[in-house]
Simulated scan of single mutants.
Amino acid sequence: MRHTTPNAALAARATPTDPLVSVIISNYNYGAYLGDAIRSVQQQTYRNTEIIVVDDGSTDNSRAVIDCFEEQITVIFNQHRGQCAALNTGLAVSHGAIILFLDADDYLVDNAIERLVAPLVDNPAATKVQGAMIAVDSSGKSLGRKVPGFISPSGDYKKLTLEVGPWTCRHSWTSGIAWQRWFLERVFPLPEGSERRNDADGCLNPVATLFGPIISLDEPVAYYRIHGRNIGPVGEVFTLESLSNRLLRMQHTYDFFLPWARHFGATSATIERWRKWKRSWKSNLTAYVVNLMDSSHPRPSFKEVVFAPLMTGSTSPLKSAGLVAALAVIRISPRKLALVFSRRLLRMPNEPRAGNRDIENH
């Protein structure tokens, strides 16, 4: 079932300085929050927008919420196939020159689209504009912090990304980013396999740095709702499942990124260096811990674990020296002690914190 609105007419009225912005809201069983997401787009100071809701097979009250907005939005009802499939569907029916993917449990700051659009209009070669988000609880009350805690400043990171790897930049997350349509059309569709269906950020963010500069804003552009049904970047725990998922997401990023890296000139030796040293010392330590928990997983070498702080370039020299010593102790310790020391060094709890984000539910 699909409801349509005259979005093609909106696109026809768009101008280079007033482009149509397509806001694609992916929803799976977030009926409690979906209305806030839709209204946050309708209340924007920037008016030339279309709203596309892709419902990913919800079984809660989402359809009733959607029906309240009737002809104000475009709606597509998918079978449950994950976030990536929802975004693929939404992009295919959208008309905007600028695209914003909004998670249904998040919502926008009132002038977010206006602030996101202006830099892309001024710099059409940029692939995206990003801003941090304000963390709020399930009722929308501020939790007093921004997420993510840091994003890279504006710049052209192509050369550095090809030298260092896909995690050169610190990026915002889905609801805090506006994309140029021309970039998305180059790299879509996103992978929809059962294990990769919710890795949109991991796919898009690193590749974006290869196609053009990125632009970062100083002020938050969205509210990131933290509630009892969600896990991921804000609350991983020290369990085999959680740590394995972290490594799996890294692998998915590699899989999507590598063909484009080769296209832009990355050599086999460079790619092997990325694989060996990964994103940071934390990643190699995570791989070692996963092996300790389940020996069927590959074990990184002593060198890969201990000397990662010196090789990835993401840690200061003084801190690197201390980390090398700590990692050496972990690497030679008995299994039980190694796990205790690793959990403390990774600063991960044994039990979920309130507000973990569920990768199944966007």
Rank of each mutant, 00 (worst) to 15 (best):
H252F: 12
S58G: 09
Y28I: 06
P153A: 04
W277L: 04
N48C: 03
P153L: 07
V329P: 01
Y223W: 08
T209E: 06
R47I: 05
V109S: 09
R279T: 04
G228H: 12
N111T: 09
P119S: 01
E163F: 02
N245Q: 15
L87K: 11
P298Q: 08
H171G: 00
G232L: 11
F101Y: 07
K128W: 02
I332F: 03
V117M: 03
G82K: 08
G144R: 13
N78I: 05
L247S: 07
G193F: 00
G149P: 12
R2H: 07
T127N: 14
R299Q: 08
R353V: 13
E114N: 05
H263M: 11
L240R: 11
V54C: 07
N230R: 09
E304R: 14
S194T: 12
R115Q: 08
G176C: 05
A37F: 00
N27A: 07
F69D: 09
S320D: 08
N205T: 09
A266L: 01
R115G: 06
W167Y: 08
P334W: 15
L248H: 13
R197S: 13
V305W: 01
C169T: 12
E304W: 10
E241M: 01
W260S: 10
F211M: 00
L339I: 09
G322I: 03
E272A: 09
L10H: 03
G96K: 01
R63I: 11
I73W: 02
V41R: 01
S283E: 14
V93G: 08
C203K: 07
G155D: 05
W167F: 12
P259M: 05
D294G: 04
G176D: 08
K128G: 05
V109A: 14
V41T: 04
Q251N: 09
F264A: 12
D137Y: 05
A8I: 06
S342G: 03
N284S: 10
L337A: 06
A321H: 15
R299V: 03
S268V: 15
T74G: 00
S154K: 01
N48G: 05
F256G: 11
P189E: 15
I151P: 08
C203N: 14
F257M: 11
E192L: 10
P213E: 05
T5A: 09
P334M: 14
F150C: 09
F101E: 00
I271R: 09
R225L: 03
D255M: 02
I73V: 13
